[in-house]
Amino acid sequence: MKKLLNTLYVTSAGAYLRRDGETVAIEIEGVVRARMPCHLLSQIVLFGETTMSRDMMVLAGDAGISVAWLTFSGKLAARIEGPQTGNVLLRRAQHRATASEATALTIASQIVAAKVANQRALLRRHLRDYPDSPGSESVDSAQRRLADAARLALEAPDLETLRGHEGEAAHAYWKVFGALVRNPDPAFAFGGRNRRPPRDAVNAVLSFLYALAALDARAACESHGLDPQMGFLHRDRPGRMSLALDLMEELRAPLCDRVCLSLVNRRQLRGADFERQDTGAVLLSDAGRKTVLTAWQERKRTELRHAWIDERLPLGLVLYVQAQALARHLRGDLDAYPAWLWT
């Protein structure tokens, strides 16, 4: 039996979380709308104007539940957690590995190659399912370029060259991503990737989903005793979750990008689900966020076979398996880090 570590998302404005025994009680305007036993949770994510009692924070810390506050756009504003756990010997091994460019390169090249291969898989699925759709020739050309980029990533002599191959692959991928959007509504026109802030509806959904994936990746790192800020591909920067960002690279296309495309192409999202601000930023509305979160959780429950462990498991557990594999590699139990390929 596998237990999928659960996350409680609270999006309702004015919601208040308090402790009720060993349960989280969620109040809105003084009325308890929901309860959730703490033993079922690994993370609580609060959006916008939501608050929590001190007793609830203490309970979360004691139960090993991390709490994250996100802005309405999905940007991490704050995070609290209980006493730090983990194996100090593993963290020292991680520190040595990140300090060695040769070691970092062997891990980072696997991550980038898998990321690009999984982006290519998304393009190939589109070509298989919609061979006569507009832009198919450009999508086919892009997937061929991604095949070359994945191969070159494995042959990169240094991290700078590797990041260059990743950038070239990203350029090819995002250039044709709009061809995968089959919703004719002008509200979902996609002219390329943009962020901080997102300036169109598709980018607003992508940025929101990437923020959720980063939180899951951080939780996966910490659950296996890894330092989420000490990465191999992403450069060190104060406050950046570099290792969490490394791990989520492999899941961007099959998890985040796939959810975004499904929501848009199935018309589960409408133009009214977005708010356009005077600054040019486009953000999901409260109703839009709820729609995305529902699809996000459903996608994470999708089962597939993981080649390294040779078992079927929910997609939401892949990050935890990858964090475990990385920890075993750093401890010397595995000769190499087995990146995850979407098949």
Rank of each mutant, 00 (worst) to 15 (best):
L4N: 04
N6I: 08
S12L: 12
G14M: 08
Y16C: 00
G21F: 08
V24D: 01
I28E: 01
M36S: 06
G48I: 03
T50S: 08
T50F: 02
R54G: 09
V58K: 13
D62P: 00
A63R: 13
I65E: 02
S66Q: 12
V67C: 02
G74S: 07
L76D: 04
L76E: 00
A78M: 07
P83Q: 08
Q84K: 14
N87S: 13
V88L: 12
T98D: 02
E101W: 14
S109N: 10
Q119D: 05
R120Q: 13
R120S: 08
A121I: 01
R124L: 05
R124Q: 11
R125H: 15
S136R: 14
D140L: 14
S141C: 10
R144T: 14
D148I: 08
A150Y: 02
L154M: 08
A156H: 03
L159I: 13
E160C: 13
L162W: 00
G167L: 11
A169W: 06
H171C: 06
K175C: 07
F177T: 07
F190P: 14
N194A: 09
P197V: 11
P198N: 01
R199T: 10
R199D: 04
D200G: 09
V205R: 06
S207F: 02
F208D: 10
A211E: 02
A211I: 10
A213R: 01
L215W: 07
C221M: 04
G225D: 00
P228T: 10
P228Y: 11
P228A: 01
F232Q: 02
R235G: 15
R237M: 11
G239K: 14
L245Y: 01
D246W: 05
M248N: 05
R252L: 13
D257S: 12
R258L: 09
R258Y: 05
S262M: 05
R267W: 04
L269F: 11
R270K: 12
A272F: 06
D278S: 14
D278M: 06
G280H: 06
G280P: 04
G288H: 03
L293Y: 05
A295T: 08
E303T: 09
L304G: 08
H306E: 14
A307C: 05
R312E: 15
R312Q: 15
Y320F: 11
Q322W: 05
Q324V: 07
Q324R: 15
A327N: 01
A327R: 00
L330D: 00
L330N: 06
D335A: 15
A336F: 10
A336T: 12
Y337Q: 00
Y337P: 00
Y337L: 04
W340E: 04
